[in-house]
Amino acid sequence: MINVFRKGWRPAAVLLLLFILWEMAVNLAEVPAWLLPPPTDIIQEAVMGWEGFRPHLQSTVLLSLCGFAIGTAIGLLTAVILHLLPFIRESIYPLLILSQNVPIIVLAPLLVVWFGFGILPKLIVITLVCFFPITVAALDGFRQTPGELRHYMLMAGAGRGQLFWKLELPYSLPSLFSGLKISATYSVMGAVISEWLGAKAGIGVFMTLASSSFRTDRVFVAIFAIMLLSLLFFGGILLAERLLIKWKSRESGRK
């Protein structure tokens, strides 16, 4: 905790300075609030409008958590299948990379055409943005196991399953967590984009409504909420990593 404080004060100070500059610039130049509201207005709106904003926030949190969970599961499963079946890896992996070049913004409306306005197309969008970093990270982790450890395991008589569970999976954990961190932040993004397609509630909906009625202060509340949420998700993954990879954190702690 003290560590967070010690490392965190510098960016926090810069942020504060930025806000002060922003406030002063907006006031001096007399920028109208619908163009760019000062930070104090945004904070005020966040506090005053909290009751109205909360259901949207809850909906987005739930959606991104569900999407992230599904994306992680599918990402891991894909990685394991591609790793254990080299034949499938060679034929599918290039296509997988290609699939990431289809812009989500283009794909999303199509998904609505195919699956309607329910939760399904939204989960598909989040899963699509989440699973890829996890698959790539896990695959890299599996494949980078040191030759000497693999050689020992094989000499000692390990079968394919033992090789995976006792060597490749634990070895890939740090790499896997890098993927999870990226996906966790992407999942909030994916949720907001999917809400733009049409939803009853969510930060995405809140944002569309706010910008179409020129409530720029509300747009900024939404932006900051998205940033905070991503940060929170990131922190959660970091915490899980600390708990799960004790050997690594102790190692770096000693250096």
Partner: peptide, 9 residues
Amino acid sequence: PQTPSLMPW
């Protein structure tokens, strides 16, 4: 083996 090859975890 020549290197200890212990699993770091």
